[in-house]
Design a protein around this nucleic acid. Structure first.
Length: 825
DNA sequence: AAAGCAAGCTTTTTT
DNA sequence: AGCTTGCTTT
C-alpha cells in the first residue's frame, strides 16, 4: 500500500510520466493539485531526483503556499529545497541577483498597477499624449499587452501597419520604459519580461537555472501569457522535463494577456508531449456537472472533454429571478442564515459570487442586516488604500531615493503647503540640471521661483535623511512608527476623516494593521530588510490572505473564485449586460472570443459548487448610477431544463409571462407584442420610454417601467425607505461599519468644524507677506489672469481686504488683495 | 499660491 | 457611485 494507490488511473499516469513534456488537461475538481503534489513526491521518493532540482510555479501566493504545505506532508525529506513559487516572486528572486546585468540597481522597487498608471499618466501629460478616444487607461493596457508578448518599445511599430494611435502608444511606451528605469522601478510585466531578457542576453545565467530546474511544473497553465510561456520554455530547454497542468475551459485572464493558445497548441510546440485527460470530478454532483458541461459545450475554441462524477445525482441547479437587486441580496442573506441555523451548515462552506466588484455592496448590506459574518475578497486591495500607499511611499523613499513617483506622492502629504507650481519649478530645475526629482529638492534654495517654498522643501529632505539614519538603527516596525509620529499622520487622517463626514477610523486601523504586518514580517524572516518587505507587499494578492478556517461566508468575483470550492454557492446577477458584461456584448461582432471567455467564467462559477448551486438575477438593478432592466443571462438559458429548477422568487414560475419564461413560444426570443423587442426597450433607459407606450411593452415589464417612470410606485418607495438600500450609497468599503445608512442629502452643517491645527509636520509654514494696496474704489487695475478691470468695492476684513473688481473680459470677481496682486494702471 | 468644493465623466475581470 | 477636473475661496 503506497500513497499512489489512492490515485485513479489517469492521475497515476500523470504522476508516473516523469520524463519529457507532459500536458495534463485537468477539468475542474479533478484532483490536479493532488496529482501534481504526488508527482513531486514520486520524483523524489521513487526516481531519486534531488528536491533541489524541482520547480513548481503557480499564479498566486495562496496556491503556492497550499502546494508547499501539501508537498511537505507527503515528501519525507528535503521538501524545503523544492522551489514552490509564483511566477512573479521567482522572477524577482532571479532579478535581484542579476539586476546589474540589465542596468538596474539590485534594490529596484516594484510598481503595482496603481503606481504604473500614475507614472504613465504624468508621462502622457508631459508629452501631451492624451487623446479623447485614447485614454491613459487604454494606453496602459496596450503597453502591458506589448510587454506580455515580449514586444519592446523600440519594436512596437515594427511589423504591421501603424496608425496614429499606434505611434502615440509607441511614444508613451518608450517614455514609460525610460521613466521606469530612471526611477529604478519595474512594473509587474517587467518582472517576467526582464527575466526573459536576462536569459536571452546571458546564456551562462540561463544555463545555471536550467541546470538547477530539471523538473518544471506549471499550475493553471491556461493563464500563462506569451512572456511566461517563453520563460518556461527557456528554462525547460535543456532537460525538457516540463509538466504543465491546466484547463482550457477555465482560461479567464485573456484581458490581461493570458494566451489560451499556450495550452491549445502545447502539442504543436512539443510534438512528443504526453497528454493526459483528467475528467473524473471529485467535487460536484451530476446535476451541477451536467449544467457546467452543457454551458461550456457552446464554446468552439476548446479541447473536447466531459466531466463525470461518482458523487451522485444531487439536486437540480436552482434559479431565481427577483424584482430588484435588493430582493436578490435579501434572499441570499436569508437563505444563508437559515442554512446555518436549520441545516447546521457552516458559513465557511458557502460563497456568493458575482461578475463585478461593484455588486458586492448590496449583498454586504443584507449580510450585515442578517448578522452574517463574511469576508470580502478583492475590491479595494488593502495595499491599494490611500493611507497604506502613503506609508508604503514613505518607506520606499527611505529605501530608494530614485523613486520619484513615491517622492511626489508624499511631498505634500500631509499638507506642507507645497503646491503644483512649486513642483513644476522643481521639475524644470531637475530637467535643466539632469537631476532626479529628489536630488533637485536638496538644492531647493537655488531653484528659480522656489524662493518662498525652499525652506519647506529643504525641511522635507532633512526629514527623509533622518528617516534613513533611523532605518539603520531601528527595527522596521519602529521606523514606521517614528515616521507616523514625526509627520503627525494620525492627526492628518483624523482631519481627513472629519471632512469625509463618516467619522469612522477605518484608516487609522489600516495603518495599525500595516504596522502589525511589518512586525509579522520581521518575525518570519531571519534577515528582514525594508526592501524585502516592500517586495512582499508588492506581490500580494487579495485572495492570498483568505483564511479558510474562519467560519465566514466568502463574497468575491467569479475571477477570484477560481481554484476554490464550496458546499453551497450563489452566483448572483445572472443577467445580460452584467454577465455577460456589457463590454462583451458590445464587442461580440468584432471579437467573438470575448463571449467565449465570459462563458468560461460561467463555467468556473458553476463548477465551484459541490452540492447546492443557486443562480439569481434581478429584473431591475442600478448599474453605475443608472437603473437598468436586463434579461436573464444566456448562460442560465444554456443550462438544460432537466437540471434547472425555477424557484418562486418574485413573480417567476407561476406562468405570468415574466422573464425568460416568456409568453412567446420561443423563450429565447423575448419579443414583445409590439414589434419592438424587450432588448430594444431596455437598451434605452427607462426615462426614454414614452408613457403612452408603456402599456405596449410586455405586461410583466410594464409594471416595473411604470413604477419607475411615475416614481410613485411601490417598488421605488420600498427601495428608498429600506435602511441600507443602495440608493443611499455607502462610502468606501465598509467591512465592520456597515449597516448604518448614510444620507448624503443632508450634509454635515458645520462649516468650521475642521480643526485648525497648524504646523502638522513641525515644519515652518510660509506666510504670505503683506502687500501695499495702492488702489481704491473706481481705479483701473490689471490682473495676471483676468486682465484689466475696474475696482467696484473694497471691504477690509480681519486678515485681508476683499476687493471686488469688474473685469472687462471676465466679469465681476471677488478677490483677496494679498493674493490678487492687482496692479494699478 | 494652495486648499476646498462642485460639477462632469466613466464604468470588467487583476498577478 | 466614485474619481478627476476646474472654479472658488482663503
Amino acid at each position: 500500500m503506497s500513497i499512489y494507490d489512492t490515485l485513479n488511473a489517469k492521475q497515476r499516469q500523470a504522476v508516473e510520466q516523469t520524463e519529457g513534456p507532459v500536458l495534463i488537461l485537468a477539468g475542474a475538481g479533478s484532483g490536479k493539485t493532488r496529482a501534481l503534489t504526488h508527482r513531486v513526491a514520486f520524483l523524489i521518493d521513487e526516481c531519486g531526483v534531488n528536491p533541489w532540482n524541482i520547480l513548481a510555479l503557480t499564479f498566486t501566493n495562496k496556491a503556492a503556499g497550499e502546494m508547499r504545505e501539501r508537498v511537505d506532508q507527503i515528501v519525507g525529506f528535503g521538501a524545503e529545497s523544492i522551489w514552490v513559487s509564483t511566477f512573479h516572486s521567482m522572477c524577482v528572486r532571479i532579478l535581484r541577483r542579476h539586476a546589474e546585468l540589465l542596468g538596474y540597481a539590485d534594490h529596484f522597487v516594484i510598481y503595482d498597477s496603481d503606481d504604473s498608471k500614475n507614472l504613465l499618466k504624468s508621462i502622457c501629460k508631459a508629452h501631451n499624449l492624451e487623446r479623447e478616444h485614447l485614454k491613459v487607461r487604454q494606453i496602459a493596457s496596450r503597453i502591458s499587452r506589448a510587454k506580455d508578448s515580449l514586444v519592446r518599445a523600440s519594436e512596437f511599430l515594427t511589423g504591421g501597419v501603424a496608425d496614429q494611435d499606434d505611434v502615440l502608444v509607441a511614444k508613451a511606451y518608450e517614455e514609460y520604459e525610460k521613466a521606469l528605469k530612471e526611477n529604478n522601478a519595474m512594473d509587474f510585466d517587467d518582472l517576467i519580461f526582464n527575466t526573459v531578457e536576462l536569459f536571452r542576453r546571458e546564456p551562462e545565467v540561463l544555463k545555471s537555472y536550467q541546470e538547477r530546474f530539471r523538473y518544471i511544473h506549471v499550475d493553471e497553465y491556461q493563464d500563462t501569457n506569451t512572456a511566461q510561456f517563453e520563460l518556461i520554455r527557456m528554462l525547460a530547454d535543456r532537460y525538457r522535463n516540463l509538466c504543465v497542468v491546466g484547463d482550457d475551459d477555465q482560461s479567464i485572464y485573456r484581458f490581461r494577456g493570458a494566451n489560451i493558445r499556450n495550452i491549445l497548441d502545447f502539442e504543436k510546440v512539443y510534438p512528443d508531449a504526453a497528454v493526459i485527460y483528467l475528467e473524473q470530478n471529485y467535487r460536484s454532483t451530476e446535476m451541477i456537472l451536467h449544467a457546467a458541461n452543457a454551458v461550456i459545450s457552446n464554446n468552439r475554441s476548446r479541447k473536447e472533454k466531459e466531466l463525470w462524477t461518482e458523487e451522485g445525482e444531487g439536486q437540480r441547479v436552482r434559479f431565481h429571478q427577483f424584482a430588484t437587486a435588493y430582493e436578490e441580496g435579501q434572499f441570499v442573506a436569508r437563505e444563508v442564515a437559515s442554512s446555518k441555523r436549520l441545516k447546521n451548515e457552516n458559513y465557511c462552506d458557502m460563497a456568493v459570487l458575482y461578475r463585478t466588484n461593484a455588486q458586492s455592496r448590496i449583498i454586504e448590506e443584507q449580510f450585515v442586516r442578517e448578522g452574517i459574518p463574511y469576508t470580502l475578497v478583492g475590491g479595494v486591495n488593502f495595499y491599494a488604500r490611500k493611507e497604506i500607499k502613503d506609508m508604503i511611499a514613505y518607506l520606499r523613499v527611505v529605501d530608494n531615493g530614485d523613486d520619484d513617483l513615491s517622492v511626489r506622492r508624499i511631498l505634500n502629504v500631509p499638507g506642507r503647503g507645497i503646491g503644483t507650481t512649486t513642483v513644476a519649478n522643481v521639475d524644470r530645475y531637475a530637467g535643466d540640471h539632469g537631476l532626479r526629482f529628489f536630488a533637485a529638492l536638496k538644492e531647493a534654495d537655488q531653484i528659480p521661483g522656489c524662493e518662498r517654498s525652499a525652506q519647506k522643501l529643504l525641511s522635507f529632505v532633512e526629514m527623509i535623511r533622518t528617516f534613513r539614519t533611523l532605518a539603520h538603527e531601528l527595527p522596521l516596525a519602529e521606523l514606521l512608527r517614528q515616521i507616523i509620529s514625526t509627520i503627525n499622520y494620525r492627526d492628518y487622517l483624523k482631519k481627513e476623516g472629519e471632512k469625509d463626514e463618516s467619522g469612522d477610523n477605518d484608516r487609522e486601523r489600516n495603518v495599525d494593521e500595516l504596522i502589525s504586518k511589518l512586525v509579522d514580517y520581521e518575525e518570519r524572516n531571519e534577515e528582514p530588510t525594508l526592501a524585502g518587505f516592500l517586495e512582499e507587499v508588492a506581490l500580494i494578492a487579495d485572495i492570498d490572505s483568505v483564511d479558510e478556517n474562519e467560519d465566514r461566508v466568502l463574497l468575491m468575483t467569479l475571477h477570484s473564485a477560481k481554484g476554490l470550492e464550496f458546499h453551497r454557492v450563489y452566483i448572483t446577477g445572472m443577467e445580460e449586460e452584467l454577465f455577460p458584461s456589457y463590454m462583451t456584448l458590445e464587442a461580440e461582432a468584432s471579437d467573438p472570443a470575448a463571449m467565449e471567455e465570459e462563458r468560461r467564467l460561467a463555467y468556473v462559477g458553476i463548477t465551484r459548487a459541490k452540492r447546492i448551486l443557486t443562480l439569481t438575477a434581478a429584473r431591475e438593478r442600478m448599474i453605475n448610477g443608472n437603473r437598468r432592466y436586463n434579461e436573464v443571462s444566456r448562460f442560465v438559458r444554456e443550462i438544460p431544463r432537466d437540471c434547472l429548477e425555477d424557484i418562486r422568487g418574485d413573480s417567476l414560475g407561476d406562468g405570468d409571462g415574466a422573464s425568460y419564461r416568456s409568453s412567446s413560444p420561443d423563450p429565447f426570443s423575448n419579443r414583445s407584442g409590439n414589434g419592438r423587442t424587450i432588448a430594444e426597450w431596455k437598451q434605452s433607459s427607462y426615462e426614454e420610454v414614452p408613457e403612452s407606450r408603456v402599456s405596449d411593452v410586455e405586461p410583466a415589464l410594464t409594471q416595473e417601467l411604470y413604477r419607475a417612470i411615475s416614481g410613485t410606485g411601490r417598488a421605488r418607495e420600498e427601495i428608498e425607505h429600506e435602511p441600507g438600500s443602495s440608493i443611499y450609497g455607502m462610502k468606501k468599503r465598509p467591512r465592520a461599519e456597515m449597516g448604518k445608512p448614510r444620507n448624503r442629502a443632508v450634509p454635515d452643517k458645520r462649516p468650521y468644524a475642521r480643526s485648525k491645527s497648524k504646523g502638522l509636520d513641525g515644519l515652518t509654514k510660509g506666510v504670505p507677506g503683506t502687500v501695499p494696496i495702492d488702489y481704491t474704489e473706481g481705479d483701473r487695475v490689471r490682473h495676471v489672469k483676468y486682465g484689466d478691470g475696474t475696482v467696484t468695492s473694497m471691504e477690509p476684513g480681519p486678515r485681508d481686504t476683499k476687493v471686488t473688481v469688474l473685469f472687462d473680459e471676465c466679469g465681476q470677481k471677488i478677490l483677496y488683495a494679498q493674493f490678487a496682486k492687482l496692479k494699478k494702471l
